Each structure stands twice: as C-alpha cells, then as structure tokens.
Simulated assay, not measured.
Amino acid sequence: MFGNWIGFDADLFGQLERMRREMDQLFGDGNGASGIRSVAAGTFPAINVGGSPEQVDVYVFAPGIDPKQVDISLQQNLLTVSGERSVSHPESAQFYRRERFNGKFRRVLSLPEDVDPDRVTARYRDGVLHIQVQRREELKPRRIEVQ
C-alpha cells in the first residue's frame, strides 16, 4: 500500500507485526488462556467437548477445510485432530488485515480413561467436524440391587 514511504519499506511493518505476535506468544499479552483447560484467543480450530454416560462428543469448528485432508487419531486417550486449511486469494490482492486462519493446524485433547478407541465416528457438515467416541461397556457403572 505505501510502497517506499519516506524511506520505509512496506515489508518492515509486516515484520514488526510478526515480531509483536511472537513476543505476545512468548511473554503473554493478557488476552491469552485464563484457565488450565483454555487456549489463547485465535487458536484454530475452536473446539467444544461434552459427554454423556454413553459417549464423548467433540465438536471441531473448522469452516473451509476439506474433510478428506483432516487426520484424526486416538491413542492412549489423546485425541489428535490435524490438517491444513487453504484460503485462496488473487495474486494481486493486498491485505490490510488478515484474521482468517490459513495453514496447518493440530489440536490434541485428553479424553476420559473410559473411552473406547475402537468405537469412534466422525462426520463433517456445515463447517463442523463432529467426533463421537463411545465409552467402554465394561467400565460403565452398573446398578446392583440389594436383596
């Protein structure tokens, strides 16, 4: 936009912004995670996790990704969701602000110990990846009647 403006290269501003983000990540900027289970603002993709006695539901909010490019694995109760999101734009486009995530991502979640790694399903619809992990039958509490 400014090109060579009073001796300053326009790329200098981009480099300063990158350095500011890296410093914020290193030292914290006050807008980061507020709890042990929280992540910093802007983490992609956003995730909601819920559960019932039968299953654990993980909702991954990832609009604009190709579901065939998402890798999901469950090992030792760690659910890993990784992939890449490509946002195309014309080569001649100039950006003054870019807030939409573009690039590789990876999220790792610790699930309860009673999940069954052999009973996992995943569906992607309307930008939301819904992963269902069933709980093991033998670990579910059962009611014992007193006679």
Rank of each mutant, 00 (worst) to 15 (best):
A40W: 05
Q25T: 15
E145P: 02
R100I: 13
K68W: 08
E54L: 12
N4I: 13
E22I: 02
I131W: 07
P112T: 06
G28E: 00
V81C: 04
I47S: 01
H89K: 07
P53A: 10
P141K: 09
P112W: 09
M19Q: 10
T80L: 02
S92L: 06
K104Y: 08
L109V: 05
I47N: 01
V128H: 03
G32Q: 12
Q147S: 09
F95I: 00
K104R: 15
V146H: 01
P63G: 06
G42D: 04
G30P: 11
Q75I: 10
V60H: 03
N102D: 15
N77F: 06
Q134R: 14
G64Q: 07
Q134P: 01
K104D: 03
R143Y: 12
R85E: 04
V60E: 02
Q75E: 08
R98Y: 08
G35N: 14
S34N: 15
R100P: 01
V133D: 04
P117T: 02
F27A: 14
P112H: 07
E54M: 10
A33E: 12
S73C: 07
V58L: 02
G51Y: 09
S34V: 15
S86P: 00
R97A: 10
N31E: 10
N4D: 11
T80K: 13
F27G: 06
D114N: 13
G50S: 15
D116W: 00
V70R: 04
V133L: 03
G50D: 14
D116A: 01
N102R: 05
G83L: 09
F8Y: 13
Q15L: 05
W5N: 06
Q147D: 11
L139K: 15
D66H: 05
I131N: 02
E113G: 07
S38R: 00
A62R: 06
Y59S: 14
E137I: 11
R100H: 08
D126W: 02
V70I: 14
Q76M: 09
